[in-house]
Simulated assay, not measured.
Amino acid sequence: MAIDDLLDEHEQGERVRSWLRNNGAGLIGGVALGLAVIFGGQWWQKNRQQQDEQANLNYEKAIDGIAANDLKKAEAAVASLGGKDGVYGDLAALQLAKAQVDAGQRDAAITTLRAIQADSSLHAIVQQRLARLLVDAGKHDEALKLLADAKDSTSLEIRGDALMASGKAAEARDAYTKALTSLDVASPQRRLVELKLTDAGGTPPKTGESA
């Protein structure tokens, strides 16, 4: 090997060592960061899986309690979900509220529904069920406030119920009429809303007419 080649190799080696001295800390830090991301992601996935399994277990406990008519057990299971387990907590609380209503525990059902922090997919259902119970409890103003921005037929119907219970027949007629605009002619709910509109002193629009 020529002396020039040895010098070139020596020079290249020095350059590599110099680069490592200047950039070694950053290189090690980058590797460490990469490992942290990998293992951190694995830990998060494992932790998330454990949380999902626990949420599913608590959901099953709630359903078992409802099926056995042991509402205390169901309430404890729903409380353990604490509204933080997404759809598991929401569905369990909805079923618990229904069981409480069936058992004549209206106020308990109202408390259960108030505690639900539902996402957009269940929000309307929770609001509607809560509003119905508030109307039944004579808390008409609370129900009206809950459905202040009602646009769907079911919410408008419930809003009409709250207005009628408050003695505001004219406003109730308006709510029922609006509810009819989005109801199919063959819908069983339509006939009920028409009866409510008639009871409020209104006249249901004929089929094919705009409400």
Rank of each mutant, 00 (worst) to 15 (best):
W19G: 09
W19V: 06
L20V: 14
L20N: 03
L20A: 08
L20S: 11
L20E: 05
R21P: 12
R21D: 03
R21W: 09
N22P: 07
N22S: 03
N23A: 08
N23H: 14
G24Y: 11
A25S: 05
G26M: 11
G26V: 08
G26C: 02
L27S: 04
I28Y: 03
I28V: 10
I28A: 14
I28G: 06
G29I: 00
G30C: 12
G30P: 07
V31F: 10
V31A: 14
V31W: 06
V31Y: 03
L33S: 08
L35F: 13
L35P: 08
L35K: 07
A36T: 10
A36F: 13
I38W: 14
F39N: 10
G40H: 11
G41Q: 14
G41K: 08
Q42M: 09
Q42L: 14
Q42T: 15
Q45T: 15
Q45M: 15
K46S: 12
N47G: 08
Q49R: 06
Q49M: 09
Q50N: 13
Q50F: 02
Q50P: 04
Q51I: 00
D52C: 04
Q54S: 06
Q54I: 01
A55G: 12
A55M: 05
N56G: 03
N56F: 00
N56R: 12
L57S: 15
N58L: 12
N58P: 11
N58E: 13
Y59G: 05
Y59I: 11
Y59P: 03
E60P: 13
E60Y: 15
K61V: 04
K61L: 11
K61G: 11
A62V: 04
A62N: 13
I63H: 00
I63G: 01
D64A: 13
D64F: 10
D64H: 09
G65W: 02
I66G: 00
I66T: 11
A67L: 15
A67V: 15
A67S: 13
N69Q: 12
N69I: 06
D70N: 13
D70L: 04
D70Q: 03
L71W: 04
L71P: 05
L71M: 04
K72D: 13
K73M: 01
A76C: 03
A76I: 07
A76N: 07
A77I: 07
A77G: 10
A77T: 06
A77V: 01
V78L: 03
V78I: 11
A79T: 14
A79G: 14
S80N: 11
S80M: 02
S80R: 08
L81Y: 01
L81E: 00
G82T: 05
G82N: 13
K84T: 09
D85F: 10
G86S: 01
G86L: 03
Y88D: 00
Y88A: 01
G89K: 02
D90S: 14
L91D: 09
L91E: 09
L91W: 12
L91H: 07
A92Q: 10
A92F: 13
A93S: 14
A93P: 12
L94K: 07
L94H: 10
Q95P: 13
Q95S: 06
L96N: 00
L96M: 07
A97D: 06
A97Q: 08
A97F: 03
A99N: 01
A99Y: 00
Q100I: 00
Q100F: 02
Q100S: 01
V101M: 06
V101E: 05
V101H: 05
D102A: 15
D102H: 15
D102E: 11
A103W: 07
Q105Y: 04
Q105M: 02
